[in-house]
Design a protein around this nucleic acid. Structure first.
Lengths: 242, 242
DNA sequence: TGACCCGTTTGACCTAGATCAAGGATCACC
DNA sequence: GGTGATCCTTGATCTAGGTCAAACGGGTCA
């Protein structure tokens, strides 16, 4: 892929062209977006926006991974979503942000200024239709996660998380069922509503049970996919986060 | 209010006209919906749709309360949302339902057949824009709830729940801070990711602390709103489920 | 009026996962 | 190739909330 994140690059060649907020747009509509966009890069670990900040731009994640999270008054953190390439940041119609957005890895955003983009939402049905679709998908994912947070055991949470990681992992270079965790143990804990110790212990237990192996902290291979899916606690038909 | 739920009644007089999926529609567009709608009533406790069922109709809750929930293989239940008047059921673009929908009280639905309504979503921007808005609002609410489920203590969960109930309770007859719980202890437990015993104990504790009193199982009055909000665990600015 | 049923409360006990604490491993940078 | 810094693992202990069990209204129905 030779796309460079430069305003002169055409949207039509963008890697997320067919999945992002612009997915339904035809050539003319795409040209409008093309003229509005700008790119921004954020280094791993850096904040992108804080809860309560004024939303100056809407953006799509083009590359990298970001997290959405909330911190309670005493410092407890709950992650409420992972933003992968093509995911959208910002709620048309609101001026501030409701959750902290942080770059988990180096992140590249494709940004649009708020007012002009809100005008597009009003004027270009393909945009509002796409935002609608994406919001409804996210809503389903959020509700699946509510079930996990409210009712699953630590082991079920970990199994569900790993199952989600391997379902989403489309990187084809990983041969033969090898995958890479996008998060540290602490981040996984904040995503699953656990402590990092519990995450570590559950992973060790699954290692001992030969459900998976780690080649290093981040990279693992599933040895027994059936056992993993059995351990998720989900009702037979496991239609998980798409 | 003398609106009777009969197909001959005009949408323009509907009690949820300005909040539901039709909120942005102008007179002409409303007429389209008017010709498509039908009403359905479900008795308290009855299922409305099960997870996996084919979605034959989209609907709006016109009166009553319904719940969205999921059951794990061994029977654990997690509620993932409450559907109040004007809330929408169904995901345009999908053929099956992802969660169980159950009538908590007697419920009246305003229904539209799937295909015709999906055509409207394509052709009438005011519809997709409104569904987008509603989905984004729900998404925020779901994420707030994820924080509660993942990180709050039993006491904080109960306080947050009560705070939500009194914020949403617009019934004006309840004079002087008196409110009514829409759910049984068990339903509250399934909503908060707790057991019914813990819900009962926490309510008793707050009663003992003079934060609230119950006139009967369902009806309570908040005596110390500051203490209640203090107990939610939320960061100062508590922008909760709208 | 009494028997029953449902939702609820309260008590006694137990356990999954948190907390506290002490090392290991791996990486980056000099 | 040594020295922090970061991330991770593992052990010992503690506790919030779950589980099990009994009993308490308050409603309904005969």
């Amino acid at each position: 892929m030779t796309f460079v994140f430069n305003e002169r690059e055409s949207c039509s060649k963008c890697p997320i062209r067919h999945r992002a907020v612009c997915a339904r747009c035809d050539t003319d509509e795409l040209e409008l977006l093309d003229g509005m966009k700008s790119y921004q890069t954020i280094a791993a670990g850096e904040p992108i926006i804080w809860r309560g900040d004024e939303l100056t731009h809407f953006s799509s994640v083009v590359a990298g991974i970001a997290s959405l999270s909330r911190t309670l008054e005493d410092g407890r953190i709950q992650m409420v979503g992972l933003l992968l390439p093509s995911d959208f940041i910002g709620r048309p119609g609101r001026e501030t942000v409701e959750f902290d957005v942080t770059a988990v890895s180096d992140v590249t955003l494709c940004r649009f200024e708020r007012k002009p983009f809100e005008n597009l939402v009003e004027d270009v049905p393909h945009i509002s239709q796409r935002v609608m679709e994406m919001a409804l998908d996210e809503l389903n994912a959020a509700r699946e996660w509510m079930v996990l947070l409210g009712r699953k055991t630590a082991r079920e949470k970990i199994a569900t998380f790993l199952d989600m990681v391997i379902r989403r992992d489309t990187t084809p270079l990983h041969g033969a069922g090898s995958h890479s965790l996008p998060l540290t143990r602490e981040e996984i804990a904040n995503f699953l509503g656990l402590t990092l110790e519990t995450v570590s212990r559950q992973l060790s237990a699954m290692k001992k049970e030969k459900i998976l192996t780690f080649s290093d902290r981040r990279n693992f291979t599933i040895l027994d996919l059936d056992a993993l899916q059995e351990a998720t606690g989900d009702d037979t038909d496991n239609a998980l986060i798409a």
